[in-house]
Every structure is written in C-alpha cells, then in structure tokens.
Design a protein around this nucleic acid. Structure first.
Length: 574
DNA sequence: GCCGTTTTCGGCCCGACTGTTTTCAGTCG
C-alpha cells in the first residue's frame, strides 16, 4: 500500500538527515510522520483526494507536499537528491548495533566505509583504531554487531516472544529475590512482532537480580551490564532488557518501559506544559517534589488522564481520546463465548469433532463452529460433496447428545479463482455458518484479486471472510488486494471479517481491523486451531482486537448463543 | 519540520550504559 511506501521513504529521509547531523527535531518530524502513515488504514490517495492530508497528525505543509509529489510522480525529488549525495551503504551502517549516525558519518568520511562488508574488513584488520573515538574495544563491538546484523535482522513474532518472555519471568522468580515483576515494552502492548523483550523488576537487592538474569541458561551473550539495567541476547537474536527499580517507582518505570516511544514523548510534553517532569522514577514538580509513580494510574493521573490500556499506546489518537474521556471499552478474553474457525479430522485437523468439542468446552466456551476445508483444498483434506454430507450428518447427530454446548455446522469454503464458491448453493444451505477464504492463486493482480474476494463476500449465503489478507507473518506477503473495496462490499452484504488469532497470521492486522470496526463491519475472532494446543491462541486474536480499539459488542463470538444464531440466520435472510 | 487553552516563533522527553575520554559524546530504548 502506498501509505507504507511513503512511510518507508520518510524514514529513509530521516536516516539521511540524521547522518548529516541535521536538527534532531526535523528528523523526529519525519519519523513521527512515517509512524502516523503506518497507522493510517485508509489509503493516502483517498485522503489526498479529499484534501485532508493536513488533518493527519504530524503532517504539515511541507510533508503534505511531499506526499502529493509522491502520489503524482512515484518519487520525491528531495530524497533523490539525498540518495545522490550519500551512498546507500552508509545508511546501512546505522543498522549495525552500536553504530549510530555520528559514527557512520565519521567512518565514511575518515575511512571511506560505504558498506557493512567494508566495515567488517577494516574492523577485522584493526584498521579502524585511531579514528577519533575508536579503539580496540569498539572494533570488537562493531564485529559483534555485524554478526548479529547478518544472522537476523528480522523481528520476532509475538507468539514466540511472549512464550520466551513468560518463561524468563518464571525463571527469575525461581532464582532471585524478586518482589514485583512485569513484562513491558512492545510485548506488553502485544504488537504483532517485537524487536526485544523488556522486563521490569522491583527488588531491594538489584545486584542479585542482575546476577541471576545474566546467568540464565537461555542467555547466549551479555550486551550491557549495569547496576539497574542489563541487556542480554538469546538464541535467534532475541534481545531481552531487564530493569530493576524501587517499588515506589514501579508504575512510572512500567509506564516508561511500555512505550511506545511516541506515546511517551506525547505524555511528557503534556507534563512539561504543566510544569511537571515524568521520568522512569516518578512524576515530579519543578522543585523536585515527588507527586507519585508507584502505579501507572498515578502517572497518567498526574497529567489529568485516565489510565490507558497498553495495547492502545501507539500515539494513534489514544491520548486525545483519554483527554476527552472517551477511551473505548476494550474487548477481553473473558468476553469470548466460542471459537468459530476450527478444523477436525474431517479435513486436516488432529481431533474428531467430539474430541474437539470437549477441548473447546474446556476453554470455558459455550459454542464452536467446525469449519473443515472445502473440496478444492485437496492438500488440506478438503471434503467432496459426499464426505461433506457425512460430516453434516455426524455433527448434527453429535449435537443431539450435547445439552449445554452448541456446535455450528460450518465449513471454510474456498473462493475459487473466478470468485465463485467451492460448493453449490444447495450444499451451502445445509450449513449453519459459511466462512470463505483463499488458499490458492495468491499471485493475482490487485484488480483481479479484489474482484475475486468481493464476489465471495457478496455471496448471500456467506457469513464471514476468513484471514482476509492471507499474510503469514515473516513468511508470506498479503495478497495484493484493495481491502477498502472489500470492506465496502462487506458493509453492503452484511458479511463479517475474521481476526484470525493464529500468531503466524493475526489477520486482519490491527490497523485494518480498526478500519473495519470504524466502518461498522462485524468481526469474529477465531483461532483456526488444528490441534487442541492451538485453542489458547485466542489471546493473540483478542490482543489484535484491543489494538484495533475493538469492544466486545463489535465481535460476534462474544454474543450469547441465541443472539449469534439469530445473526447467522438474519444474515442469510437478507 | 510540526505545532499552539500562555506562543504563528521558539520550543520540541528523559535517563542508563559504554568507551574513550580526563569531563563527555554517542548510542540506545
């Protein structure tokens, strides 16, 4: 999408300006603008057409002009000039941990370093020592930084990071005099991927905590070791930062460490205007009087704001909403009444429908939909019409024996290349719930793919579009589809959009889910579980929904059974 | 480069750790 493209270019301009030693606030302006564009679900082309670019926070006259220029010419002259001036390889150097803009500039000017390869060569031959500010130790650190840069620059999916983080928390509890301990950072905000894990501990014996931390069996490298702050690296290059604070500062530190950076900057600006100072130790008046900091509520309260849920802390309108007293009431996992995308042995799942029902009921749910694959997805055991009818019969029979749990007979029906569905309407009418999705022909043009999905969504017997973008995080890009057009079609046909809770997918992504919600499109959150151990993935889907400002009423599977039944029937009656 | 319930100009978050320095700049989060 053009928004992401322009955000990348703004970040690139920021890199160049930083390298040139330009005003840091100018750099910040580009970065903040880039972030605002990334969080904007609506296509910039449409925003520009309405003449509303200046309404985007962080976009002023100058940046609006650059956006307009890019939309018209697919390039920004100012950036082209910068690219001509400084080789791309110099920017690349900043990606090496420990090398910042000042060092990159120095290396380029003093030693002609214009690529990571060249940097590595010179560091290994000890030819950097002697450049002002660089000695043997820095050469060593640069080589370590390059090793990490090379073996994995990618971010870690939340599904992996959260598990590791929770394991570390448990180990620290077992090995050291931990008082309070909490996850912070992007893990606490439940961002779909994270760069590192932040852990916060209160203890009267920081030294013992630090010792235990850097000695954990999962630690492969100690990056920083201080009295109150240490950083280590685990396998797969996941970095973990630990901070120890006094109990009276716990809330301030938790707030500070949770971020996002831009959210914190905004908060401190507000504090500053009130002649207050917020840091990780508390909230202070100009004369140093401490106003609070033991809890996050005290920190937000000191600047007249209510506590803001971590998932919202992205400087995406949450501070304005908090100030106006209209923060959304977010959905919680306890609101979920059932799971609406599940696979059984009728296609590629591991459990029979009966066993699946037991496992789902054990999650505390009141209902589920079994949604095995349709015939085209042969590789996943898609059901032909005969098998399909046998499945329907078996599930209906099973339902007879269940009193306090309901199974919706459903199917995950392929949308074929031409947009038609994988079963005749006659078969689809046998089902309580029809979920449609795409499993092949990913490489269509944007127009073809959009028309294909729109046709599927408009089908009167369809209830839900499953994993709407098709992305697999870190592995497969989303299909090239105009989601806005799909959403408009859904709004007209009354179909719902799924938030697929599998941590590999998280699809819809948060920004798009927020857009769907704003358009009034009903959502579902489902795990797409194929085995029982995937049922708890619901927490990741709920986290995406929370990041999308979604409340329980926006999500169909928070409804009582009777309400959901009537929604499914009414959708069909349209 | 953006922004304004003190400002259309003069501000713009804040601190820990490291390496290379004799008091601090650079990097990071």
């Amino acid at each position: 999408m053009v928004n992401a493209e322009i955000a990348m270019l703004f970040n690139e301009i920021g890199d160049f300006l930083e390298l040139k030693g330009e005003n840091a606030f100018r750099v910040r302006a580009y970065r903040r603008a880039a972030q605002a564009l990334e969080g904007l679900a609506e296509d910039l082309t449409a925003v520009a057409a309405r003449g509303e670019l200046l309404a985007i926070p962080g976009i002023g006259k100058d940046l609006a002009a650059k956006i307009t220029e890019y939309l018209a010419r697919r390039s920004i002259e100012y950036l082209e000039d910068l690219r001509r001036e400084i080789p791309a390889g110099v920017i690349e150097l900043i990606g090496v941990h420990g090398v910042g803009p000042k060092t990159a500039k120095l290396l380029y000017e003093r030693a002609g370093v214009d690529s990571v390869e060249k940097l590595e060569e010179l560091a290994r031959d000890h030819k950097l020592a002697g450049i002002p500010g660089i000695q043997a130790k820095t050469e060593e650190n640069i080589l370590r930084g390059i090793a990490v840069w090379r073996s994995g620059r990618e971010r870690t999916p939340i599904g992996t990071a959260l598990g590791l983080a929770e394991a570390i928390v448990q180990q620290l509890r077992d090995r050291a005099p931990v008082d309070e301990i909490a996850l912070a950072g992007s893990v606490r905000r439940m961002k779909e991927t994270v760069k590192d894990v932040d852990i916060l501990v209160t203890s009267r014996e920081p030294a013992r905590i630090m010792e235990a931390f850097i000695g954990l069996p999962v630690v492969v490298d100690v990056l920083v070791r201080g009295e109150t702050k240490s950083s280590v690296r685990l396998r797969r290059n996941l970095q973990v930062d630990l901070r120890v604070v006094q109990p009276e500062s716990f809330g301030a530190a938790l707030q500070y460490f949770t971020g996002a950076k831009q959210h914190n900057i905004r908060l401190r600006e507000i504090a500053q205007r009130r002649n207050l100072k917020i840091n990780e130790y508390g909230v202070f008046q100009e004369d140093g009087t401490r106003l609070g900091g033991a809890t996050e509520e005290e920190v937000y309260g000191a600047v007249g704001l209510p506590w803001i849920p971590p998932e919202l802390r992205e400087d995406a309108g949450e501070i304005e909403a908090a100030a106006a007293g209209c923060l959304p009431q977010l959905i919680a996992t306890e609101n979920i009444q059932g799971d609406l995308q599940l696979h059984s042995t009728w296609s590629d799942g591991a459990l029979s429908v009966a066993d699946l029902a037991d496992a789902v009921r054990a999650q505390g749910y009141r209902y589920m939909a079994v949604t095995d694959h349709s015939q085209s997805t042969a590789i996943a055991g898609g059901m032909g019409p005969v098998k399909f009818m046998a499945m329907v019969a078996e599930v209906r029979q099973l339902q007879q024996r269940l009193t306090d749990f309901h199974i919706f007979v459903g199917c995950e029906v392929d949308i074929r290349a031409d947009g038609s569905l994988d079963y005749e309407d006659e078969l689809l009418r046998q089902l309580d719930l029809v979920q449609v999705s795409i499993h092949s022909g990913f490489k269509m043009s944007r127009d073809e793919m959009t028309a294909r999905i729109v046709r599927g969504v408009r089908h009167p017997l369809v209830h839900i579009l499953g994993h709407p973008t098709g992305r697999v995080i870190g592995q497969r890009a989303p299909y090239d589809v105009d989601l806005e057009t799909v959403f408009q079609a859904a709004r007209e046909s009354g179909a719902a959009m799924e938030i697929n809770a599998s941590p590999a997918r998280l699809d819809l992504p948060d920004v798009s889910a927020r857009r769907a919600k704003d358009l009034g499109i009903p959502l579902t959150i489902s795990t797409d579980a194929h085995v029982a151990t995937e049922l708890p993935y619901m927490r990741y889907g709920v986290a995406v929904a929370r990041r999308a400002w979604v409340g329980a009423p926006d999500v169909l599977n928070t409804r009582p059974l009777r309400d959901l039944k009537s929604w499914l029937e009414r959708k069909r009656g349209r």
